[in-house]
Design a binder for these strands. Structure first.
Lengths: 342, 342
DNA sequence: AATTAACACACAAACGTTTGCGTATATATT
DNA sequence: AATATATACGCAAACGTTTGTGTGTTAATT
């Protein structure tokens, strides 16, 4: 029953050396002679030795493991950023575990606890919509586990951040609507508990003011998770209005797509009756007809940048830098939902 | 500076009890008196004790960690199945780490090695396209780490499997095309190294034969990763043919969408000139115009089933069952790309 | 020839838990 | 009163590494 696998101790006994020699030989420590090193490696291979990282992690006080906490992995923005995180983490010798909060505060707290217990070397998180109390992240600071917040960050928390300028992006989007002639610009806002949706709302308002348009509260729809259903609901409400908006800035692509679909069903034409702008440049935005004007927010690159920043924090001991904030570029991508193809 | 966190040993010293008592008290072991138990818990809380799972894992020889290996997390099918896996794993007290192979054999091997080293309690994997040699999974069998393959499985490997009947699904799809009157049915096939794409090709052929249609090799396009680019390339080749197909079954939604887009650009109409069927019922399939007829393969449920199966294998010691295979239902969803809305 | 330095390895403690076993006191059983 | 049982806790080994220090041998330096 060679049931239990060979360990360093086992190898040492077989070869008549000490476990410390085995350990050093396997990682090419210079103090081990050429000959014994080779002999050890050879038999390790032959006997199918597999290093036990759990033991190693305990001893080294390092796990080479970074935890990622996101609201929902099946949303394109998040799976893309995870993909970016995973790529640079792996490159640097870290592996990645995923926690999905489904925007629940409790699940977020639990995730952080598990990651602390498991001695993750660092954490990258995108806040749940429900989250406003951030003690769980503050507790993290005591444990010296570096944290990077991305996309949905928290201003009350001093931590590393990677985000885009949502205000600016929203401003560009709405300014574009104004410039193409929209006078009554509506907005589907996300959960204002979240930094990004608050900023997008403010960017929206600022752009209207800058273009001498009045802000009409009836034209602002306050959403939550911005699902397809929410989008449809708002779109229907919008098309039921007496004086209808002639442009709309949606805080994500999902709701923007719902608006376009609803418009089609109700025989309104986009962009003639209403121009629509989304947010995130998800794959669907290119495909839908009319194709969707939207903000490219570079999710993959945000993920990469977050991972790079985190790993720097993990590996550098520069205690002078308390925290760092990275702003990622964003672009307005103009498509047919605001400017019809000629 | 209180830099190093409090441990059980520390708590024990402070409270004047043994570490074993602390350990047992914290997990409500019956042999610890009410009074001491409460006292221990109280001070543990007060001093911000965080259990060290790494140490616990080492001692218990269990990590409560399951590894997931998928080709690309930013593809909807995979992020959905991960979401399903994550949900049931968390429910059962496991956390999930993700490895992305990008369809590379080497990355898959490395991922398995990392998971073995890290003593994952189990692994759920969807094979990379490149993978044909599966020694790395066979090695896993020696370590007694349970494995569940899902979607893209390997017939040479005796292991737990969760998949759909791709042959049957493809048959249904192509039979549908035949029944609506298509005589020249084409197929965009995936990498035939992969079980699912081979099965879909065979289902395609079988359906043609069953409908007394001849199999024309010119109508079969052999793809690889089935990206948008591949789809466009094949679509253009298809529309350049003298006698064009009047129906096409695409091995995934991405290429199906490309066909529809290309058709639109080149002024062919779907489904009148060519009917098209995709595979996976990704969100985009509902949105595109015409909406896409496709196979619903229940990615989320596949993930759930995989996780449940794996956890059963981890926790049950029923050594009678060597392996188990679950077939998940699938349905043909008929939309406008084969049957125009009246 | 004496001192240094380099080399090659072994010893043993440590990382922070868990757990089988042992023991002392208190209560119940005959 | 003697034995058995339950209760409440401590001892110490173990999980499999890593690493600081120690030691004996050989080669280099003066």
């Amino acid at each position: 029953m060679g049931n239990t696998r060979i360990t360093m101790k086992g190898l040492a006994k077989i070869l008549g050396v000490s476990t410390s020699t085995v350990s050093r030989a396997l990682k090419d420590h210079h103090s081990i002679g050429e000959e014994t090193r080779e002999k050890i490696k050879k038999t390790a291979l032959k006997l199918g030795y597999i290093p036990n990282s759990v033991a190693s992690n305990l001893r080294r006080r390092k796990t080479n493991h970074i935890g990622v906490i996101v609201p929902r992995i099946d949303r394109y923005f998040h799976s893309s950023s995870i993909s970016g995180i995973e790529e640079v983490a792996n490159e640097a010798g870290y592996y990645v575990s995923i926690f999905q909060t489904k925007d629940s505060y409790i699940k977020e707290v639990e995730s952080v606890e598990i990651l602390m217990s498991n001695k993750a070397d660092g954490i990258i998180a995108c806040l749940a919509l429900e989250t406003s109390d951030i003690d769980h992240y503050k507790q993290l600071a005591n444990t010296k586990i570096p944290l990077v917040l991305f996309d949905r960050v928290c201003n009350d928390l001093e931590s590393n951040k990677v985000l885009i300028n949502d205000y600016d992006a929203a401003f560009k989007a709405c300014d574009h609507l104004a410039k193409i002639g929209c006078k009554r610009i509506a907005h589907i806002a996300g959960n204002l508990n979240s930094s990004i949706f608050k900023a997008r709302l403010e960017g929206y308002k600022a752009a209207l003011i800058a273009n001498n348009l009045t802000i009409n509260e009836d034209f602002i729809f306050y959403g939550n998770i911005l699902s397809e259903e929410e989008g449809r609901h708002f779109a229907n409400a919008l098309f039921d209005m007496n004086t209808k908006p002639d442009g709309i800035f949606c805080a994500n692509d999902i709701t923007a797509v719902s608006v376009i679909q609803t418009a089609r069903e109700r025989k309104f034409s986009v962009p003639q009756d209403i121009a629509v702008v989304g947010f995130s440049n998800t794959p669907i935005s290119k495909i839908i007809q009319p194709s969707l004007t939207t903000i490219e927010d570079h999710a993959f690159e945000m993920g990469q940048a977050s991972a790079r920043l985190l790993i720097k924090q993990i590996e550098d001991n520069d205690q002078n830098i308390v925290s760092e904030t990275l702003i990622i570029r964003n672009e307005l991508i103009i498509r047919e939902s605001t400017v019809p193809a000629e």
